[in-house]
Design a protein around this nucleic acid. Structure first.
Length: 686
DNA sequence: ATTAGGG
DNA sequence: CCCTAAT
């Protein structure tokens, strides 16, 4: 049984606080809408897989691999084209949608370390009931629909590659209703018995690790098929060679159920890759598995919208409130990577909303990506400022893999641990500009080009693990020590560590121009060039292994499907009142009296979004206190005694003249104004 | 949504 | 500034 806790997706998730938080007034007015972006983009998923497969085929062909893919060479040209044309899409989806798995090629596997072991391990379980269980989760129409959408989208995309004159393209040409076809193919609508057309087989290959079929029969595409040839190759055999022994191969590999002849096993290599990916995202519960592999990958993204403009205060308070961090999590018994909820996502939605995630994910694959709202607004008294409204940081998805026999409490703890490890393992923030990582911390925003309004929408933030585990020990029973590492190294796909490469390495991630970030820029923004960002490869591919944590004594994680969003609220940036603000406040209170803070706000702080009536009330409270204490005890910017005197006077007056709820208080105002409150001890009676 | 107060 | 109870 696999429990997948997708921290990123719509059906649940932990969210890291946005920075900064919107003023309460705004929040309370419902201006802070949460955006439920669909995290799983079917298209991206399939596209990714397809891209990977293509890449693999190319690789295999060119490297003369012994995987029996030689015939794939025929599609090489097309493959390349696709990679070039659609690589971004593929990549994007792939990185993020690892739930469908990603594998390594033979060459990669050779040098695999962590992941490899894990993969093997996973594979070893392939024949177990565990897999059956997992796959069985897929056995519902909802999930199938999801897959169908995937196929549909993929078909659309793939059609672009048709130029390559490969079957691949042909099989997915057009915007046919692939869902129907797929369903039919699966036997949802028909009794299966579909012939194994190349198209179908391809679909299967491109589908998720599990294959959905009717009649509760579960195919185990992830396992078997000792045959060296891949589905892809078979596919090509079908069309190129007209070979019809594919069915035999399939039957041999799958021992398919009676009715599901149509179900083909994904290629072995692909399976492995899928395994790898899946594995990498699992949090294995200790009970059954001695080796706790706590790995984490990039991907999961969850964001919620914050309306309020942020502050660019460098002295920003970095305190996070975490009390709500885990109180609303929910564990979902996943369908194997796709939540049924996500199924409802329309393709269009995937193509649009998910772009954000895709792009962000691409660039922050290893950690958490963020969507950023860039604001550029001048500060009245200061120079040109750049305001960033980070809608949210999204926690990478996390898959939980625990034995079926585990207890709920154990599951909760496992999730807790995973989350804790992810969030508490140490994160650092990365800045992405137009898809490139800005590594020079000493560069100014202006120099980097971040301040340029045109670049605001291509700005992204990532949360990167600040710690990483050394590869080998991933599967070992000994929790490896946390080793601080250079995130750049971690995030950059490195030849020396192919194991961590999850994404399609063929293309650079698309610029984050599709993040849908809103930009409030100001004309007085300083323009600058953006070419100062380094050309470092997009990060993304690292699998970050996290150390196993104690399984004991962890707080129970409440399961609440309803409130699947938990916000970690950040304390607002402290913004001391200026003298002028105090003056305005005092004046307003003198006229309106205490207890009418909303009016005060509207009267004197209408345009000060960061000053809520509560703030004003609080400030008045502190002012009164300040006025009563000795000057030596006062802190912060000194408030003119004259103002403090007025504060005391007004406070005294309004204390004796409670504001009537309805009537106006012009009289009171006049009185106050007439009363020279020069008395340090306040005015007791007017 | 506001107000009033404690923290 | 935050949090909450009470309006």
């Amino acid at each position: 049984m696999v429990f997948k806790k997708r921290l990123d997706h719509g059906f649940n998730g932990f969210r890291v606080p946005a920075i900064p938080r919107a003023p309460r007034s705004v929040r309370r007015r419902g201006l802070c809408k949460k955006v439920e972006d669909s995290q799983i983009c079917a298209f991206e998923l399939l596209a990714s897989i397809a891209g990977k497969l293509l890449q693999e085929s190319e690789s295999s062909a060119s490297s003369n691999a012994s995987e029996g893919n030689d015939h794939l060479a025929t599609g090489k040209g097309a493959v390349k084209q696709e990679q070039q044309d659609e690589g971004k899409s593929f990549k994007a989806g792939w990185i993020y949608q690892g739930s469908c798995g990603e594998g390594s090629f033979a060459s990669e596997m050779a040098s695999q370390n962590i992941s490899h072991k894990c993969i093997l391990k996973e594979i070893s379980h392939a024949d177990s009931d565990e897999v059956l269980e997992r796959n069985s989760v897929f056995n519902n129409s909802d999930c199938s629909q999801k897959v169908g959408i995937n196929v549909t989208d993929f078909g659309k995309i793939s059609s672009k590659v048709e130029g390559g004159s490969t079957h691949f393209g042909e099989s997915f040409d057009g915007n046919v209703n692939e869902i129907e076809r797929l369903n039919e193919f699966r036997g949802f609508k028909t009794e299966g018995a579909n012939t194994c057309s190349s198209k179908d087989s391809m679909e299967l290959c491109l589908k998720s690790p599990t294959v959905i079929k009717s009649d509760s029969n579960v195919e185990l595409p992830l396992c078997q098929d000792p045959a060296p040839d891949t589905c892809f190759s078979r596919y090509r055999n079908d069309d190129k060679l007209g070979s019809r022994d594919d069915d035999e191969n399939f039957s041999r590999c799958f021992k398919p159920s009676t009715k599901a002849k149509a179900f083909r096993s994904p290629p072995r290599v692909a399976n492995r890759r899928i395994r790898k990916l899946l594995t990498s995202r699992y949090w294995k519960a200790a009970p059954k598995l001695k080796d706790c592999e706590l790995s984490r990958t990039d991907g999961g993204l969850k964001q919620f919208y914050r309306k309020r403009k942020p502050c660019c205060n460098r002295q920003r308070d970095v305190l996070f409130k975490r009390r709500k961090m885990f109180d609303q999590s929910s564990v979902v018994i996943s369908d194997g990577g796709f939540s049924c909820e996500s199924v409802s996502n329309s393709p269009e939605k995937c193509m649009t909303e998910d772009k954000n995630d895709t792009a962000a994910m691409l660039n922050g694959a290893n950690g958490v990506s963020s969507s950023v709202l860039g604001h550029q607004a001048p500060f009245h008294s200061k120079g040109s400022h750049v305001k960033f409204s980070i809608k949210s940081f999204r926690v990478p998805e996390l898959f939980i893999d625990v034995p079926e026999t585990t207890t709920v409490g154990s599951l909760k703890r496992t999730v807790m641990e995973a989350v804790t490890a992810v969030l508490g393992g140490g994160l650092r923030v990365g800045v992405l500009l137009q898809g490139k990582k800005v590594r020079d911390d000493n560069r100014t925003l202006m120099q980097t080009g971040i301040s340029h309004k045109d670049n605001m929408d291509s700005l992204g933030f990532t949360l990167e693990p600040s710690t990483v585990q050394i590869p080998p020990p991933l599967c070992s029973s000994d929790p490896p020590p946390l080793i601080p590492c250079d995130p750049s190294q971690l995030l950059t796909r490195s030849p020396e560590n192919p194991a961590v490469e999850i994404s399609d390495p063929l293309t650079d991630p698309p610029p984050l121009t599709n993040l849908g970030n809103h930009v409030e820029s100001n004309d007085n923004t300083v323009s600058s060039h953006i070419d100062t960002t380094d050309k470092t490869e997009p990060d993304s591919k690292a699998l970050v292994a996290l150390p196993a944590m104690s399984m004991e004594a962890l707080a129970v994680v409440p399961l609440n499907e309803k409130t699947r969003h938990s916000e970690i609220v950040q304390r607002r940036t402290r913004r001391p009142f200026s003298v002028s603000e105090v003056e305005a406040l005092v004046h307003a209170v003198e006229e309106l009296g205490t207890g009418r803070w909303r009016d005060v706000k509207l009267r004197s702080f209408e345009n000060a979004d960061h000053r809520t009536y509560v703030d004003l009330k609080d400030k008045w409270k502190t002012l009164v206190h300040t006025a009563r204490i000795s000057p030596q005890q006062r802190r912060g910017e000194p408030v003119p005694q004259e103002l403090l005197d007025r504060v005391l006077a007004a406070h005294a007056y309004w204390s004796q003249h409670p504001v009537k709820q309805h009537g106006k208080h012009q009289a009171g105002t006049l009185k106050i104004m007439e009363t020279p409150a020069a008395d340090d001890n306040g005015v007791e009676g007017i």
